[in-house]
């Protein structure tokens, strides 16, 4: 692979240290932003997740060498991403359907409503 050349490896070592330092800075920013107490919980979640995605991308791209990998790996990960999106949509499906919402039937006896 492209990392077998010693000169390239030496160059990569500097990158590893820089990314490690950047990850620590981003961790400090995440904690710092949390202490400010943003206006809404939605904003706080968005900011924290954006920083987490940035940190995660750096780990994947540099430490896991995903910035230069073979297409089979990308293919496997794209498939994973597709299934992962479905998995993350499950909570959305639960709020979109009517499972758990009481069905009002005018003729039903009152006792049947108590079950919910």
């Amino acid at each position: 692979m492209s990392h077998s050349d010693p000169a390239a490896v030496r160059k990569s070592i500097n990158t590893y240290f820089m990314v490690g330092a950047a990850l620590l800075v981003f961790t400090a920013i995440t904690v710092g932003v949390n202490r400010i107490h943003l206006a809404s919980i939605a904003l706080a979640i968005t900011v924290a997740l954006i920083i987490a995605v940035m940190k995660g991308s750096m780990v994947a791209a540099v430490f896991m060498h995903l910035s230069h990998e073979r297409k089979w790996i990308y293919g496997a990960l794209l498939l994973t991403l597709a299934f992962w999106i479905v998995l993350m949509s499950v909570p959305l499906f639960t709020t979109m359907d009517n499972i758990g919402t009481p069905i009002r039937v005018p003729s039903a006896a009152p006792a049947e409503h108590k079950g919910r």
Binding site: I41, A44, I45, A48, I51, A52, G56, V59, F63, M64
Partner: peptide
């Protein structure tokens, strides 16, 4: 690195938000 990556998401989700 994957185990580290999971923690990067667990930390804000459980400790901060």
């Amino acid at each position: 690195h994957f185990v580290d990556l999971v923690w990067i998401f667990l930390f804000p989700v459980l400790y901060l938000l």
